[in-house]
Amino acid sequence: MDVIVCVKQIPDPETPAAAFKVDEGAMQVLPAQGISPVISPFDAQAVEAALRIKDASGDGTVNVVSLGPDSARDAIKHSLAMGADEGYHLKDDAFEGGDAWTTALALSKAIRHLGVPDVLIFGRQAADWDQGTVGSIVAELLDLPSATVLRAVELNGDSITVSRVVADGFENIELPTPCVLTISNEFGDPRYPQLRQIMQAARKQVTELTAADLGLAASEVGAAGSRVQMHALFQPTSDVEVEIIEGDTPEEKASGLVNALREAKIL
């Protein structure tokens, strides 16, 4: 079974809050010193899901596509080190400043260019902006059935059974192929690459594709094609006030707490 996974390189979500800086004027996140960007954790889980599908089906390929600047190559290399077969890097100055729509448009063109696979997998959302829309838009553009926020994926002959994470439990769905899936963190940890695979991945060529290669005009992608306009970018400040409720007995403390919650109109 052939799978394509779309991955994104993001600032490390483990970056300590103290090192996270925003340039409010330029409306940009400043890269933290000494902390390299990483593959979005959900996307690494998407690669894991793809590799498990390939293993379960016994044949096929897992190819990886990423749109982004030079550093996005590292996310592709990481996926290759995990065991993916080929990597494709959508790299063009024209892609810069885009939104979920332009990203999904470029990705869908790339997937058509490469040939629609049996399964197309995304992470549930990129762990930087957390919009969680690209997967669904690509499914719509390619006119494929999709299931999002999955915790389990199982091959079932030609169809696929998946388990979605929903507010009050799980939802099991069967989809035909080809289809689009987005993987949630409940799926489980991605594998740690073996050193041999890291070294092989380092030597592997990554195919670069530009907007023109995909038949896209510069006006359709990047900032020019964006449908979302950003008005402000700032770090929220959260002020925490702590009030210790005094009391000699637990009962006194509890009633003091109830009164305080009532005053704050929480109760």
Binding site: D12, E14, A18, A19, I35, Y192
Partner: peptide, 30 residues
């Protein structure tokens, strides 16, 4: 290195070393 088989905590530590250049995952400090 050969099998990539290790406890999750070890994997987390190695990943933090790779990415952040220190082993203290989740530290609030710089």
């Amino acid at each position: 290195m050969e099998e990539a088989r290790m406890p999750d905590t070890v994997q987390g530590t190695l990943e933090t070393l790779e990415r952040q250049g220190h082993p203290w995952r989740g530290t609030p400090y710089t």
